[in-house]
């Protein structure tokens, strides 16, 4: 067996030295020309750690201009890159992960006690010595929010053509043959008629792809959870709005299909270990609408049951769905005017939102909870393939 000589790591202090004139090259290699695949086999968020180790060295030699310059160039390069890749989910997710990790590093190694509670003694030794970068932390946090918003916008645009078809039109239960994964984009207009051909499987596949990429990039699970929650909100809003405007989907069988689809999405969340209740609550109005389509709508007892069941839907929404409700065959009756009046009477005095349609543009505020890393900077290995051999390990 060949003996391998381990290079002594004990002298490495987890800093990276570079000449000021190499800053542009560093930014080019690490940000501008970086592709997520180039670091997929390394520790997640390697670019963020490398940048931080460079900042540490500039701090160590007490060169404030070098720290300023590196941080400004970094923020500048990330902004430009995002502008260039404004429709690219993978790139946006990758830089959200790295920006947030760089922000965590600036906190973890700030020397401020509140951020040091989980640090190892070695990590505490690695804290910044000369500079307080609190103001740059604020800039990075603002940048993170911008990147998050871009990520949500991209994901929503990609899902938009799928939602109505997958949730309301294609059905594995109703005997409608799923049409598979065809490329059409027109589900937003409510009177377009026929399905655009996306199945629930396609929508779930898309969600899986988003979630897998975020995990692979090392995005904090708390943040990817917020992305999924926002996307579920969007699925709820678009589906419910279509239901509130289209007679052809207000039927018992769509209600049954919808309920089944929502169960599948719930299963998906469970399979991905995502916070179920928190995310499912965004889709609750759609669950209630599906139940409303399925329950009996005849007696005063039915009316009372509907009123207690549909506590998130507004009176206006409940009444609208009942008015649009279309019997599937001659055995089923239309909802009578007096039944709808009963519902209106029962719901009188309920304080609620007066709007019929759900705001599809609403976004939940994003939070970036502090997530320190257990990783030790002195163990960081930089692959030769990154062409960063001008960085000196210190």
């Amino acid at each position: 067996r060949q003996a391998t000589v381990q290079r002594k790591e004990k002298d490495f202090e987890g800093m990276l030295e570079y000449h000021k004139e190499d800053e542009a090259l560093l930014i080019r290699m690490l940000i501008t020309e970086m592709k997520p695949q180039m670091v997929s086999a390394t520790v997640p968020c390697l670019p963020a750690y490398i940048l931080f180790m460079c900042i540490r060295h500039a701090d160590y030699i007490n060169d404030d201009q070098k720290v300023h310059s590196l941080l400004t160039s970094t923020i500048n390069a990330i902004k430009k890159l995002l502008k260039k890749n404004s429709e690219d989910f993978e790139m946006t997710s990758f830089w959200l992960a790295n920006t947030s990790r760089l922000l965590h590093c600036l906190k973890q190694y700030s020397g401020e006690e509140t951020f040091m509670t989980q640090n190892s003694p070695k990590q505490n030794e690695h804290c910044l010595k000369n500079f307080d970068l609190a103001e740059y932390r604020q800039v990075l946090s603002d940048l993170g929010i911008q990147i998050y918003q871009q990520l949500i916008r991209i994901a929503e645009n990609m899902m938009q053509p799928m939602i109505v078809s997958a949730m309301l039109e294609s059905g594995s239960l109703t005997g409608v043959k799923p049409l598979g994964y065809r490329n059409r984009s027109s589900s937003v207009d409510c009177d377009s008629g026929g399905p655009s051909g996306y199945t629930l499987d396609a929508l779930i596949k898309q969600l899986s792809q988003f979630h897998t990429q975020m995990s692979e990039h090392g995005l904090d699970p708390e943040i990817s959870q917020q992305v999924v929650r926002q996307l579920f909100y969007s699925i709820n809003a678009v589906s419910l709005n279509n239901l509130l405007l289209r007679k052809d989907v207000c039927s018992w069988s769509t209600g049954m299909q919808l309920r089944y689809n929502i169960t599948q999405m719930e299963e998906w969340l469970r399979g991905r270990n995502l916070h179920l209740k928190h995310i499912m609550s965004t889709i609750e109005p759609l669950i209630q609408a599906a139940q409303l389509l399925q329950v009996k709508k005849k007696t005063i007892q039915d009316a009372e049951a509907i009123c207690s069941m549909c506590n998130i839907l507004s009176t206006q929404q409940i009444v609208k769905i009942l008015n649009l409700y279309t019997p599937l065959n001659e055995f089923e009756e239309r909802v009578t005017v007096s039944f709808i009046r009963d519902i209106q009477n029962l719901l009188q005095g309920r304080t609620e939102n007066a709007q019929l349609l759900v705001d599809t543009k609403h976004t939940f505020p994003v939070l970036f909870p502090y997530t320190p890393s257990a990783l030790s900077l002195e163990t960081m290995h930089i692959p030769a393939s990154l062409n960063l051999d001008f960085l000196g390990r210190v």
Partner: peptide
């Protein structure tokens, strides 16, 4: 053991101020 020196706050422009400085304009674009 020496007490660490207090760190010097590095002033940074806000992201909005950086935008105003046209820092993020792409030189490549026309």
């Amino acid at each position: 053991r020496l007490l660490p020196r207090p760190r010097v706050l590095l002033k940074a422009p806000t992201l909005a101020e950086m935008e105003e400085m046209n820092l993020f304009e792409d030189e490549d674009s026309p």
